[in-house]
């Protein structure tokens, strides 16, 4: 059974997804100096609404802060072969975002440098980032 849920993104997530479509990863520079990516709807320090137009670009490279190997991919996962889920702190951000990491299991370490692999067709969705991959060099 499958349901296609149609969801409103709101202004901030909408701006984030619009950025992805244009190969930009956007984060929010909060009032306490942290840079949160993906951006939240509200500033966690002072509860002020986040203004979509004030988002800043981060990445597209970053560092793996944690990861987990997925040996049994499920339908709808980014890959139909084993892969890693990783928390990636993009350059310029102070928080991490979750996405797939396409790298051999024995080549993954916490602290490794990775970069965004963009999807060929981007529509304004989280899968516009196809995955992260090891950053060359």
């Amino acid at each position: 059974m499958e349901f296609a849920y149609t969801r409103s993104t709101g202004p901030v997530v909408g701006a984030f997804l619009t950025g992805l479509r244009g190969q930009k990863v956007l984060g929010y520079k909060a009032s306490d100096g942290s840079v949160v990516c993906p951006p939240p709807e509200f500033d966690a320090a002072n509860n002020a609404p986040v203004i979509a137009g004030e988002l800043i670009e981060v990445g597209p490279e970053g560092v793996v802060t944690s990861w987990s190997w997925n040996p049994l991919p499920r339908p709808g996962n980014p890959f139909d072969r084993p892969f890693a889920w990783a928390l990636v702190k993009l350059d310029g951000a102070t928080s991490s975002m979750l996405h797939a990491l396409d790298a051999p299991r024995d080549g993954i370490t916490t602290g490794m440098r990775v970069k965004v692999r963009w999807a060929d067709e981007r529509v304004g969705f989280i899968n516009d980032i196809a995955c992260f991959e090891p950053a060359g060099g």
Binding site: E2, A4, Y5, R7, T9, L17
Partner: peptide, 15 residues
């Protein structure tokens, strides 16, 4: 490719 701001997504849920 459209340059309109994204306001909605379709998130399929399958069982």
């Amino acid at each position: 490719m459209s340059d309109e701001t994204i306001t909605g997504i379709i998130a399929p849920i399958r069982m």
